[in-house]
C-alpha cells in the first residue's frame, strides 16, 4: 500500500473544500478541509454560530451539501449516501425525543431506521452500559434531562456506527454524569468507534480529545494535536512573589515587559517555551542587579481555553 492510500485508509472522514450558504445568503461554512483519523477523539471547538452543527448536519445528511465533497470511510455522502449514513451516528445538541415512547422502543426504532435487523441482546447490552436498563419501560417524558441524554446516545449507537458525532454531549448535565459520559466515550473509542465531539466545555476537549479543531465564523482556524497545540500556542507565565511590594516596575526591568499583580506583591513574566531563549536567566540576573528580592516563584501554562480564546481573538 503506498503512502497516499495508507493515509486515506487511516482517515474515516475526509472533508474537502466544503462551503455552505443557507437560503438568504448566510455563509455558514467557508472552504473547510478536514480529515478525521480512524479511532481518534476529535474535539471541534467554536463559539455559538461558528458552524459546528452545520458541519455535522451536512455530514449526517440532515442539511444539504453546498460546494465541496465529503467521504465517510471512502463513501461519498452524496453518491454513496446509504453506505456513508449507515456508518454514522449522531447525538444532537438538543434533546429531541418522542415523549410518549418507551426507552426500549425508541432505541429499537433507531436501529431499525438504520437498516439493521433487530438485535435485542445488543440493545440490552447497550442500555446496561448506559445505566438505562432499569428505565427501559419508562416513557421518555418520565426521564430526567441526564437520562434523556443517555437515551440519545443509546439511539445514536443502536446501529453500531463507526463514526459518532456528539454535538455538545454534556451540555446541561451535572458533573457526575459528565464524568460518566467521558468514561463512556473512552470505552467507545477503545471499541474502535471514532468520535467527533463539539463542546463548549473546553475542559472536556482538554480531558478527552486527541486532536482539536477550532472553527470560527465558518472557517476552520486550526487543527492540531491537542498536546502540540497547547505546547505550540500556549504561553507560560512566571510569577514572582516579592519580598517588598513595588509601586511601579523599575526602569531597569523594562525590557522584560513585566506586569505588576496582587497589589504590587507579584511580578508576572510571560515567556514562550518555543522561543530560542526563555529569558528567565537574564530576568533573574536583572532582578538581583535592581535589588528586587522575591520570596517564592511559580510557573503556569495556558489552558486550552486560554488558547481557544486567543485564537478567536486573533481570528476576529
Amino acid at each position: 500500500m503506498n503512502a497516499v492510500a495508507q493515509m486515506a485508509s487511516d482517515d474515516i472522514l475526509v472533508v474537502r473544500g466544503l462551503d455552505k450558504v443557507y437560503p438568504g445568503g448566510f455563509q455558514a461554512l467557508k472552504d473547510i478541509d478536514l480529515a478525521i483519523r480512524r479511532g481518534e477523539i476529535f474535539a471541534l471547538l467554536g463559539p455559538n454560530g461558528a458552524g459546528k452543527t452545520t458541519l455535522i448536519s451536512i455530514i449526517c445528511g440532515i442539511v444539504n451539501l453546498g460546494a465541496g465533497s465529503i467521504e465517510v470511510d471512502g463513501h461519498d455522502i452524496v453518491r454513496d449516501w446509504r453506505a456513508s449514513r449507515s456508518l454514522v451516528g449522531l447525538v444532537p445538541q438538543e434533546l429531541k425525543t418522542d415523549a410518549f415512547e418507551t426507552v426500549w422502543n425508541t432505541v429499537r426504532f433507531s436501529r431499525g431506521l438504520f437498516g439493521k435487523a433487530p438485535d435485542d441482546a445488543y440493545i440490552e447490552r447497550l442500555l446496561k452500559e448506559l445505566s438505562l436498563w432499569d428505565k427501559r419501560d419508562n416513557k421518555m417524558l418520565m426521564l430526567s434531562g441526564g437520562m434523556k441524554r443517555r437515551v440519545m446516545i443509546a439511539k445514536a449507537l443502536s446501529h453500531e456506527p463507526r463514526l459518532l458525532f456528539l454535538d455538545e454531549p454534556t451540555a446541561g448535565v451535572d458533573v457526575e454524569l459528565r464524568r460518566d459520559m467521558w468514561a463512556m466515550v473512552r470505552r467507545l473509542r477503545e471499541s474502535g468507534v471514532t468520535i467527533v465531539l463539539t463542546t463548549h466545555y473546553i475542559e472536556e476537549a482538554e480531558e478527552m480529545a486527541d486532536r482539536v479543531g477550532v472553527i470560527n465564523k465558518g472557517e476552520l482556524i486550526v487543527v492540531e494535536e491537542k498536546a502540540a497545540l497547547m505546547h505550540k500556542l500556549g504561553r507560560k507565565q512566571l510569577r514572582l512573589q516579592l519580598h517588598d511590594p513595588l509601586d511601579v516596575v523599575p526602569d531597569a526591568l523594562a525590557p522584560h515587559r513585566l506586569e505588576l499583580a496582587a497589589g504590587g506583591n507579584e511580578l508576572v513574566y510571560n515567556y514562550d517555551t518555543q522561543g530560542e531563549r526563555t529569558g528567565i536567566t537574564a530576568l533573574l540576573a536583572d532582578l538581583a542587579a535592581a535589588g528586587v528580592r522575591f520570596r517564592d516563584l511559580s510557573t503556569r501554562q495556558d489552558t486550552l481555553e486560554q488558547i481557544f480564546l486567543q485564537l478567536l481573538k486573533e481570528g476576529a
Binding site: C60, I62, W81, R85, L90, P92, D98, S110, F114, G115
Partner: peptide, 18 residues
C-alpha cells in the same frame, strides 16, 4: 408533522432511507 414539530425528524433524515 409531529417529528418535525418535536425535532425527531433529524433521525429520519440522517438514516440510510430513500
Amino acid at each position: 408533522y409531529f417529528p418535525k414539530f418535536v425535532g425527531t425528524i433529524y433521525e429520519v433524515h440522517s438514516a440510510p432511507l430513500s
